[in-house]
Design a binder for these strands. Structure first.
Lengths: 355, 355
DNA sequence: GTGAGAGGTGAGCAAATGCTCGGGCGTGGA
DNA sequence: TCCACGCCCGAGCATTTGCTCACCTCTCAC
């Protein structure tokens, strides 16, 4: 198969690889057995992997999209990205994403962690699926104020309460609206101990779980009564494409300093940047622009979303990055781990996947 | 694919494996990323390999028989076994085996090595293919006496000379016949300085290259005039099935103390046992009994032979050992290296190879 | 309720592995 | 012929990995 290999070399590589991977000898044993230096054996094994004499294949469940996840991580420098299986029904899709988020939290939460939580339908679904293996001494705190037209489970306080119940931890509520009428009113509210204290806890969180909002007329901010359609239209004119915790950003990820930003009660983008792990959960269709904007703002560490948004976001990034790996998730050829001995990276990786 | 895995676990294993093998993270990074202890990650990766979520495949050239080699090593405790590609024509087959032997020597020989060499048509072919990359300060010494009806290239002295020429080393000749008329004559010859010296060098060799002789009427010993057909028939009656360096053994590998053994000039089986690496080269058809006998004598460390003999020897060993691995050499599932977490060995290995 | 056993867990260590770097050798050009 | 360049090689070190062992928890029988 590897045509650029001489017969002699092919035999040697195959022998070494077989002895190493199948028979389980160590490289040192092989070096004695074949009369080579140990580093030489290691270089030859590397070459065997590189030429395809050794093929390491990861058989992933068909419903996972590890390739998309890898592309997302790569494209946006995320610590992690999770693409949930696709569902036709929006509610089912939301639950699927929430399930992924819940699993993720279960893996990552540790006693004593403080988690700042946003509002939103996506975020709100997460607690339902959250079942940690044991009681966690965690604190869940609202990272933003509540919405006037409350349908309970999407309000941050309520979400925190649900989390705390599931985790056996405690909830810290923020008793304030997300947006107040004026900057002056905001400052006076922030001077209240109860409000200031909650925000202080939230700002010191080690983790944040946030949704990503859009700017269409049906977005959470409008539905929940925070904004009128006119206010939102004005934000769009300012270039807004989406928000986290009420902080709007434009397509290039720059925070928009609109009149609205002065009326916001909750963590700022800069507050978020100081939080170690910011987890964004998104499931709704037609959100790629908002997601892109927020990703470009560089506050998100972990992105959990559905397949459709993942593809849309990646598609919008520019031409197909790593199109070679777009094949079925099941077939993942070895790239970075067993890099080419010495060669330009991207290029060469591209050529292996052909094979 | 792995049906005995829960969905959740399958996902986790796939994620870990992908991150480890494809993205090249370390286990420690994964442990942080997934919120697991490092040993846990390592156990999960082990499980991923074991359940087939990760599949390591060695693509060997179709003309190699790495599976047969592994079985030979296993069955007879050999340090190494090399099965040469099959050839229909006996002479072509002999050359193929000799080529393998030559390659093997090239890999193993080091400056200062002393190699004891037997007579025989197989051994005699090796020097023709021997082309070390650089001059080797090696000594090649006859491990047994010569034969009366000399056709030059099968006499040990001549083989040594050819080796020395190719290697740029030196040859030490043994000026004596393989068999003399009586034990008394042998003792007197051994008392000769020239003879004793050569044998002393041979006995102190770090390597021996020997053929394996049969007991049919056309064997080297008869063709070369060492024995008459009658003498050979007598050896057969004593149970002889084959020889190394003129030392005959029976089917169970016991040395035969016949009248002939007292007349032999060359290294004994015990001398051979003291040599670190004894390499046996065999190609002729119909030799499996001789090979088996000699293997059972436990003097051979490395066996180099043709496919037909390899299969015959293994077939005769008892029922198909490791029949699971008898498939094409190209497909070698991982066994020993990534053993089952905790389980009886043979059994479990058998079951992987099914898959 | 209580005790015994099985199974799972992570600290810590020994071995194996990957990698860097200085040095030798061959090749091709002046 | 001699020199420069580049390639390959292996010693030695830092990191990663595999593994052992003591402990902990959970289950089940008594």
């Amino acid at each position: 198969m590897p045509d650029n290999l001489g017969q002699e070399e092919y035999e040697l590589l195959a022998r070494l690889a077989h002895r190493y991977y199948v028979d389980g000898r160590t490289q040192e044993e092989l070096s004695r057995e074949f009369g080579l230096s140990r580093p030489k054996v290691q270089r030859l094994l590397e070459r065997a992997r590189w030429t395809g004499v050794v093929d390491i294949h990861v058989e992933a469940p068909p419903w996972l999209h590890l390739d998309l996840e890898a592309q997302l991580r790569g494209a946006f420098g995320l610590a992690d990205a999770i693409v949930s299986p696709a569902r036709a029904d929006p509610q089912a899709q939301r639950e699927e994403v929430a399930r992924c988020a819940a699993r993720y939290l279960e893996r990552r939460l540790r006693d004593g962690y403080v988690v700042a939580v946003s509002h939103g339908r996506d975020t709100g679904e997460v607690p339902r699926f959250f079942r940690p293996a044991r009681r966690l001494g965690c604190t869940f705190v609202s990272a933003m104020g509540g919405s006037p037209r409350v349908d309970a489970p999407t309000n941050p306080n309520e979400i925190c309460r649900a989390f705390a119940e599931r985790a056996g931890g405690r909830a810290v509520s923020l008793f304030a609206p997300a947006y107040v009428e004026s900057a002056e009113m905001r400052d006076r509210l922030l001077a209240q101990d109860a409000v200031a204290e909650a925000l202080r806890v939230a700002a010191a969180a080690s983790m944040a779980l946030v949704g990503i909002g859009g700017t269409d007329d049906d977005c959470t901010m409008v539905r929940s009564g925070c904004f009128s359609a006119e206010e939102l239209a004005r934000l769009r004119r300012w270039g807004a494409v989406g928000d986290v915790l009420g902080n709007y950003v434009d397509a290039r990820g720059r925070v928009i300093a609109s009149p609205e930003s002065g009326r916001l009660i909750g963590l700022s983008i800069d507050d978020l940047r100081r939080i170690e792990t910011v987890i964004a959960v998104v499931s709704e269709a037609e959100k790629p622009k908002a997601i892109l904007g927020v990703l470009r703002a560089g506050v998100v560490d972990v992105l959990i979303l559905d397949e459709g948004n993942a593809r849309a976001v990646l598609g919008a990034t520019g031409e197909d990055r790593g199109s070679g790996t777009t094949r079925g998730a099941g077939t993942a050829r070895v790239t970075r781990r067993w890099e080419a001995p010495r060669a330009g990276t991207k290029e060469v990786v591209g050529s292996t996947t052909v094979r």
